[in-house]
Design a protein around this nucleic acid. Sequence first.
DNA 1: AAAGCATTATGATATATGTCATAAATACAG
DNA 2: CTGTATTTATGACATATATCATAATGCTTT
Lengths: 231, 231
Amino acid sequence: MYTDNKITSCEFCARCWVNFKNLSPEELELINKNRYEASFKPSEIIIKQGSPSSNAIFLLSGLAKVYMEGYAGKNLILNLAESKTLLAGPGVHVNARYCYSVAAITHVEACFINFDVIRSVIAANPGFAAGFIEDLSDKALKLHQKVLNLTQKKMHGRLAEALLYFSDKIFHSDEFEMVLSRQELGEMTNMAKESVVRIIGEFENENIINATPRSVRILDREKLLIISEKG
Amino acid sequence: MYTDNKITSCEFCARCWVNFKNLSPEELELINKNRYEASFKPSEIIIKQGSPSSNAIFLLSGLAKVYMEGYAGKNLILNLAESKTLLAGPGVHVNARYCYSVAAITHVEACFINFDVIRSVIAANPGFAAGFIEDLSDKALKLHQKVLNLTQKKMHGRLAEALLYFSDKIFHSDEFEMVLSRQELGEMTNMAKESVVRIIGEFENENIINATPRSVRILDREKLLIISEKG
DNA sequence: AAAGCATTATGATATATGTCATAAATACAG
DNA sequence: CTGTATTTATGACATATATCATAATGCTTT
């Protein structure tokens, strides 16, 4: 991990999070003065669960996986994070610890902003505070949905949903690069890697998808949706 | 459900949520003027998932269950709520819908406060806003923990944990009233009611607990803790 | 090109957990 | 009380899913 402080302009910050639009030029400048960029190679850890959370991290470019380290070294991938995402986790406001880890999937450019600065802006700017609450809430809402999915659907449904997640939310295409290994796909859907392999095979046999280890093409989105919903 | 507007004094509000301590007397009075009390009998629904979320609800007394309605009528109980708890859910700030349901377990006195009023106070009072963010974050953090528990522990661990939750967080005693049915205990630990019955039986045989349908006494907290962690 | 390592794939088997049927116990209404 | 509904309990069985062993494939390094 290489770190460098390359202050360009406050315009820059406005690009990385919708909620920064609520800031005045002065506030944006304050944020801008207190930010540090860093870049990460694939598989490098950007945030380590349990470590003190002094910074909010924004992704400027690249793709990362957000995951919790559970019991006996078993991970649970919560979601992928793209650019323009705030990464910090609720722990920041409770026990000042990151409650999840984040690792780069592709090359990642990130921006570290000291949380005290963000807190001061929250205190000074109600619109920003409201935006912040909205962001927290949006993530919590998605987590609520994820709990239901993980607990009430069976394997086929969970995997179908993951594939639709990639297609709809990340790559916006029926054909996409499979950036996760089968192992990681298992960590995302809470199943063994062997089961992932098996079910992908079944989906292929039923002409629902075409898959190679590094790519997926959705052939029958309707069927995939039904499987995802029926669970 | 019977509703009545009995304004007493702003002191009252300060009793129902820690974060109300951050309010000025005037702000407290504003909240107080815009609140409505209601009482609920056991099993009555206080919040219905999916309905428009115009109010924040605070429990003044009693015990309620917070649960998500999932697929095919299968519920997932997230936690129990006591007095002094804010109930609203992250959906309020995202799509103005409650993302979970809440039902009274015991007799419940609750206080409804229009969310616009709360929002106006958030905008005016940074300390309150920060407290609000902390509350949201605390709940999100617990949900993160719950996801891990539900996905990575097996039945014995999940049930042990639920029993410890009642003992430690709700009743603060090794002996407590079992306010949930075996069915509901299953909805809380994501297992079939029959499995709940079986495992409670096993715990009794191993002298870890004493249980009747309506009460539990923890005999061997150490063992229960180990089961909950190794689970 | 060869060797070594990680990932993917596949089959056999074990295990956790759900489902179904039914009985026993408890709460409840008339 | 007395019959009726609901909850708890128990056993037999079905099934989803993990685990283990092993092979096949692909990727990296020498």
